[in-house]
Amino acid sequence: MEGPEGAQIRIFVDADACPVKPEVYRVAERYGLKVFVVANAFMQVPRGGLIELVVVAAGPDVADDWIAERAGASDVVITADVPLAARAFRNGASVISPTGKVFDDDSIHMAVATRNLLTDLRSAGAATRGPPPLSRQDLSRFLSALDLAIVRLKRKLEGKA
């Protein structure tokens, strides 16, 4: 899907622990959008020209760096990783967590502060829990947020925003 300046809407998926990849594939197919599935190891992705698996070297933040260096104002980034969300948001990308949380000006700052607090607590020896399992409401919120982000980007690229 291209706008007047040739910008295309693309979706970048921080894939290693992403529970909504099948949903992303279906939405991308419906809109005809390119998806980059970025992971540290090989994983199965649907065949076809729209979905591309990008396997990056193992190591901390290698997949995040790959996404952050490429995602921009006409892109959607799917990640639960708060530092990556902040970087992609600063680059102008629309950023959505697998639970459907949309990172915007207000929420990204709160998410970074919360993450930093939890990191400090863990380093001080406090036991913290991981995220709860994905619920049906989370999935519904995610699909709504992804659809809305794509529609907004389409309008922007078509000059209607």
Rank of each mutant, 00 (worst) to 15 (best):
D104E: 08
A57L: 09
P98D: 01
R10A: 07
D138K: 01
P22M: 08
S144P: 00
P46G: 07
F89L: 12
C18H: 09
A93D: 06
M1I: 11
G92Y: 06
Y25H: 07
T128A: 06
G72S: 11
D75T: 06
Y25V: 09
G59N: 03
E52W: 04
T99H: 11
I67C: 07
A111Y: 02
A57V: 09
T119R: 13
K101R: 15
P22Y: 06
F89Y: 14
I96A: 05
P46L: 01
N116K: 10
G49N: 14
D64N: 01
L118E: 04
F142T: 02
E5G: 05
P4I: 15
A63Q: 04
P19C: 11
L121A: 10
L148W: 11
F12G: 01
A88G: 06
G48P: 06
K34Q: 15
I9C: 09
L118W: 07
L117M: 12
F89N: 01
N40T: 15
G125K: 12
S94N: 10
A73W: 11
K21S: 07
P46F: 01
G72F: 03
R155S: 13
F12K: 02
E2W: 12
P22W: 09
Q8T: 05
G59T: 00
N40H: 15
K156C: 07
S97I: 07
V62Y: 08
G92A: 07
V77R: 03
R70W: 04
A17I: 11
V112C: 06
V13Y: 04
N40A: 15
S97W: 06
A15G: 10
A86N: 12
G59Q: 10
G6S: 03
L33K: 12
V82L: 00
R136H: 10
S144V: 11
G72C: 05
G32S: 12
V54D: 07
L117C: 00
E52V: 13
V27S: 11
A113R: 11
K160H: 10
V54P: 06
A41V: 14
T119P: 00
A58P: 06
L53P: 09
S144M: 10
G100F: 05
E23C: 05
L157E: 09
F36V: 10
A88M: 02
P98G: 01
Y25A: 03
L157F: 05
P132R: 14
M1H: 13
G48F: 08
V95C: 07
R141S: 13
R129W: 09
Q137F: 08
L50I: 05
R47D: 15
A71C: 09
K101M: 13
A124H: 13
D14C: 13
L53Y: 05
E29G: 13
R115G: 04
S74Q: 02
M1D: 03
T114P: 00
F36P: 12
V77C: 00
A93R: 08
